[in-house]
Amino acid sequence: MTGLNLLRALFVTMKNFVRAPFTVQYPDRRVGLVGAAKAEGKSPLGLIRNNPKRAIKAMAMLATVPEKVPQNKRFRGNEFTWLETRCTGCASCAKYCPLGIIEIVTHPGGIDVQEGESYGIDVFDIDIGRCMFCGLCVEACPYDALHMGATFERSTYTRAGLVIPVDELRAAPKTPSSWFRPQFEERGFNPFEEQVENHHEAGRHEQPTPEELRQRWVNQR
């Protein structure tokens, strides 16, 4: 009780004072001259010669370098990836969503890419304003057509903007998260660097036979 441990506590905080900060400065990071030069792949002198404006800015600690949050491949982000060519319109995702936020309107007789008949999709809206990103829709999808997105930057100013319409889903870059998709992990797919080019790549390895399908859909569920 003589205050020695208080001094020890001060020592611990001082140890942390000299430690490097652990903050991730998302979305961009303030850098000095060295950092700015490194981001452009030049030496500091090279930066001063090539881009004096940016060099001065960097010397005043005003230059920024974009920084990404370290994410893992299984990250359940809000930018869903949907492959229309794989989707049969079975609405399993809509059915298994605990909140019922997926709206699907189909018409019979869509394009037949997979085995069996499929529906044409008119509406496939996901209301991510109410989504809790549990990923059960992805787990429920038997044809691996719907995937969680790997990124999370789809934010808007209005609630109405939080509904992802089908056109956006069609046009969005195909960067699926490997959540509940072991096939992506097996071949080392990195959603932060590459995209799914071909809808065949997104599927599981073994194609279910019609018999298996019936087993799965009629007998078990």
Binding site: T13, N16, F17, R19, P21, F22, T23, Q25
Partner: peptide, 12 residues
């Protein structure tokens, strides 16, 4: 300074 005590960067 206190940001550094807490291993953070502080206002920048």
């Amino acid at each position: 300074v206190f940001a550094r005590f807490q291993n953070r960067v502080g206002p920048n």
